[in-house]
Each structure stands twice: as structure tokens, then as C-alpha cells.
């Protein structure tokens, strides 16, 4: 793939830009890097309070609902945050694309990677909370977490592919950003993040949710990181296919529009 080869050649630049992104985000803030730990921690605390005392929600099985929600929300926030940033990353870096010779694929890649770093910084909160719940005997610690790198890889590949397409298309279609907001909202509720598949009463609707390509990716992730289930081979295959198709189509769209980016942005 042309995009991948180009990114590999410029890995040094990508790394420096990711570091710059992270530095710039925390420069001048009192807590610095602690923020990326604190944000998910606060989120988890709020969910725990709300879904324990205000709306006592449950999911089938023994897993506490706040933890269940958190385990689905973390990868979702990573993906949706990446896409929303990808929609503006090329126009934000317009001066660079227009005035400096610079490969455009670098910027969506940097977006994906810096969001990934944040995600990796938030993961210990989830793991610590799971360990704590296991300590209180609420759940068994999910040793399947050893499979997390694979689940995360699939999610990253899918996100990166869609991010490439979104970045390139957003240059030509200014309204894509608004459309994306709505689409992401739709997908958030069409993916079993705040509920499980078993909770859907209507069978036809369950089919629709199951057919949603985001579903297997989120499910594989949550299965290994929290529920302690090893996903079936079929599930892995389905998730891997989605990731691969996202990447191939995204990279294809990007390389088709690549030449027009510097002129249009």
C-alpha cells in the first residue's frame, strides 16, 4: 500500500509530530500528562455514581454496569475522537501542505497515533478498576487481557482507515464534519456500548445491531479486556475483515484524492 510505505519512510517525522501534539496539549497546564489519566478517572467516577445511585443499571452477568460501560466507551471515544479530529486535521495543517513540501498522509496518521497514546494512557485506569472489582470479588480478573493487543490492533487499523478517508473527503466536502457528528451519534447507539446484544427485545433489531460493522470490533475488545471471554474464531474473523476493509477502502480513497489535497485545502 502506497500510504503505508510513505508513512514508514517518514516515521521519524510522524514520531516527532506526535510528540509535538502531546507536548503542545499539556504545555502550560498544571497537571500536565496527569490529565490523560485524570480524565478517564473522572469519567469512571461519574458513571459509577450515576449508574449505581441515580439510575441503577444492570447488564446480564456479574459485571458492574459502570465498568461495563467504561470498557466499551474507552475504545469508542478513541475512535470517534480520532475521526472528528481527522475531519479537520488537513485544513488545520493547510499552511504546511501549501507552503512546505509535506506528504498529506502524515497528518491523519499523527491524529490516529496521538489519540492512541491517550487511549493507552487511559487503559491503566480501566485495568486498575477491573482489578479492584476483582479484589472485592465482584468479577474474576480477565486474564484474556493478554489478547488485548490484537483486539486493539484491529480497532486501530479500522479507525486509521476511516480516518484517512474522512481526512481526504473533508478537504473537498466542508459539510462532512457535521455529517460525521450525526453519523457517530447514530453508530454510538447502534453499537452495543451502553447495552448488550442480549438486552435487545426485538429480534430483527438485534440482527441489525449485529450487522453493524462496529459491533464485532467493540465486542472483541470488551470481551478480552473485561468480560474474560475469548471471542470465537468467527468473531475474530468478522472483526478482522471489517478492519481490513476499512483500511483498504480508506487508503484507496485517500490516495485517489491525495494529489488534490494541497490545492483544495
Amino acid at each position: 500500500m502506497g500510504v503505508l510505505a510513505s508513512l514508514y519512510r517518514q516515521r521519524g517525522l510522524v514520531a516527532v509530530l506526535v510528540a509535538r501534539d502531546l507536548k503542545a496539549r499539556y504545555r502550560g497546564t498544571f497537571l500536565g500528562y496527569l490529565w490523560s489519566l485524570l480524565n478517564p478517572l473522572l469519567l469512571l467516577a461519574v458513571y459509577t455514581a450515576v449508574f449505581t445511585f441515580v439510575i441503577p443499571a444492570r447488564v446480564p452477568g456479574a459485571v458492574p454496569y459502570p465498568l461495563f460501560l467504561f470498557a466499551g466507551l474507552l475504545p469508542w471515544l478513541f475512535g470517534s475522537g480520532t475521526l472528528l479530529d481527522a475531519a479537520v486535521v488537513l485544513s488545520d495543517n493547510g499552511p504546511l501542505l501549501k507552503k512546505v513540501v509535506c506528504a498529506p498522509e502524515v497528518f491523519p496518521a499523527v491524529t490516529v497515533l496521538s489519540h492512541l497514546v491517550h487511549h493507552l494512557l487511559a487503559l491503566p485506569v480501566l485495568l486498575a478498576a477491573t482489578a479492584a472489582a476483582a479484589g472485592f470479588g465482584l468479577v474474576r480478573f480477565p486474564w484474556t487481557v493478554a489478547l488485548l493487543p490484537f483486539a486493539l490492533l484491529l480497532w486501530v487499523v479500522a479507525t486509521a482507515g476511516v480516518a484517512l478517508a474522512v481526512a481526504a473527503l473533508a478537504v473537498h466536502f466542508r459539510d462532512l464534519k457535521d455529517l460525521l457528528h450525526n453519523l457517530l451519534n447514530l453508530f454510538f447507539f447502534a453499537t452495543p456500548i451502553i447495552y448488550t446484544l442480549d438486552m435487545i427485545p426485538v429480534r430483527a433489531l438485534r440482527r441489525v445491531i449485529l450487522a453493524n460493522p462496529v459491533t464485532p470490533l467493540i465486542q472483541v475488545y470488551r470481551d478480552v479486556v473485561l468480560l474474560g471471554r475469548v471471542p470465537s474464531v468467527l468473531m475474530w474473523a468478522w472483526a478482522a475483515t471489517v478492519a481490513l476493509v476499512c483500511w483498504v477502502v480508506g487508503a484507496w480513497i485517500f490516495s485517489r484524492l491525495r494529489e488534490t489535497i494541497a490545492e483544495t485545502v
Binding site: L13, V16, R20, R27, P95, L96, V100, V101, C102
Partner: peptide, 29 residues
């Protein structure tokens, strides 16, 4: 090729001149 089309294009305001010089230099190849 190095293009001096807009000097300092792409300097990030929040990070130091040194870090910006590194990023800019790498963009120039």
C-alpha cells in the same frame, strides 16, 4: 528541494523554538 515560501509555516505556538526547529527540519527532509 527546500521551499522558503512561508518562513516558519507550521511552527506550533505552544512548543519551544528548539522543538519546532526539529519538526520543521524533518519536514524539509
Amino acid at each position: 528541494v527546500t521551499a522558503l515560501i512561508e518562513l516558519g509555516a507550521g511552527f506550533h505556538p505552544e512548543i519551544s523554538g528548539r522543538d519546532n526547529a526539529i519538526v520543521n527540519g524533518m519536514m524539509l527532509g
